[in-house]
Amino acid sequence: MNPLILRTSVRIHLYLLTLFSFYLLIRGHNEPGGGFIAGLLTASAMVLQALAFDARYASSLVPVREQTLIGLGLLLAVGTGVASMLFGRPFLDHVFHHTFLPFLGEVELASAVVFDIGVYLVVVGVAKWTILTVATGRAGQSGPGS
């Protein structure tokens, strides 16, 4: 069986799903969405690729080591917390500000979104790592195991 149709459609899905996940991530503060959902959506996109091709290829689409993703995400999350402390506010106290950007109209810039991006990165990293490990039954391509 040659899953040609699957593979072709999956390629298109990849971009759509990734784009949509970014959209969900950014709008999550005001509409359904957010870091968890966006991260999981990206992960589903990777799962689709893994189904159509193989897990190694799927994970190579995210060209960052999974440990780096998780670490970076946690760092961002903690960083927003520490940043608010630097301004003399309690840990993880967020600020937001409305501003006008060309093409996008009025946009709210909230430090909470940075936190959410951290969540997103962690979820993507965890999903990538787990899927790769379970699918191949061995350590990931970037791990010391290979």
Partner: peptide
């Protein structure tokens, strides 16, 4: 919180 998605 500056967001309208309460859950988020």
């Amino acid at each position: 919180g500056g967001g309208s998605n309460i859950v988020n």
